[in-house]
């Protein structure tokens, strides 16, 4: 390679390396802030190296798994409460509105709302998170041992 090209190649590589490390350091510094949501254990035990706790009244997002058996619907309104869990403590979510189709017990969800008590959030938005696994129903049943049906919400009680 002739010296001029070599010089240009090094210049290009230096630019990529320089900007790469700048962006890398920035993202590293912002690490915690780019996360879309708190997990329930982060909310209770604090987040990051300083164990920073969110304050009451803070608007935040929380993501976790809906605890099976914790979903409690009002008979006469759209109010619903449920509990979220990841690996540690549970957090209670209160929500008024229509839940997404994929919402079910055991499903990962992300809720956005206000912290009203250290472990209670009043959500104004609930989003369902699905995983990266795709399979036909029969195989899901065989592999996971669960039958996936749309949950029925006390429809019988009205009849």
């Amino acid at each position: 390679m002739n010296p001029r090209r070599k010089k240009r190649l090094f210049a290009v590589l230096a630019v990529i390396f320089g900007i790469g490390s700048a962006v890398g350091l920035t993202l590293y510094a912002l690490q915690e802030n780019i996360n879309l949501f708190y997990t329930p254990s982060e909310l209770i035990e604090g987040k990051g190296p300083d164990k920073e706790l969110p304050y009451i009244g803070q608007k935040l997002r929380i993501g976790g798994m809906v605890v099976p058996g914790s979903v409690d619907r009002e008979e006469t309104s759209l109010d619903v409460t449920f509990k979220l869990i990841d690996t540690g403590p549970m957090v209670t979510i209160k929500y008024h509105g229509i839940l997404p189709d994929l919402f079910r017990e055991g499903q990962g969800i992300v809720a956005q709302g206000t912290l009203v008590e250290p472990n209670v959030i009043e959500a104004f938005e609930v989003l369902a998170k699905h995983d990266e696994e795709y399979m036909p129903a029969e195989i899901a049943e065989a592999v996971k041992g669960i039958k996936h049906e749309k949950p029925k919400y006390n429809l019988n009680s009205e009849n």
Partner: peptide, 10 residues
């Protein structure tokens, strides 16, 4: 790297 709503790579 981060908590996202988008699921992981399949």
């Amino acid at each position: 790297w981060w908590n996202t709503l988008h699921q992981g790579s399949t």
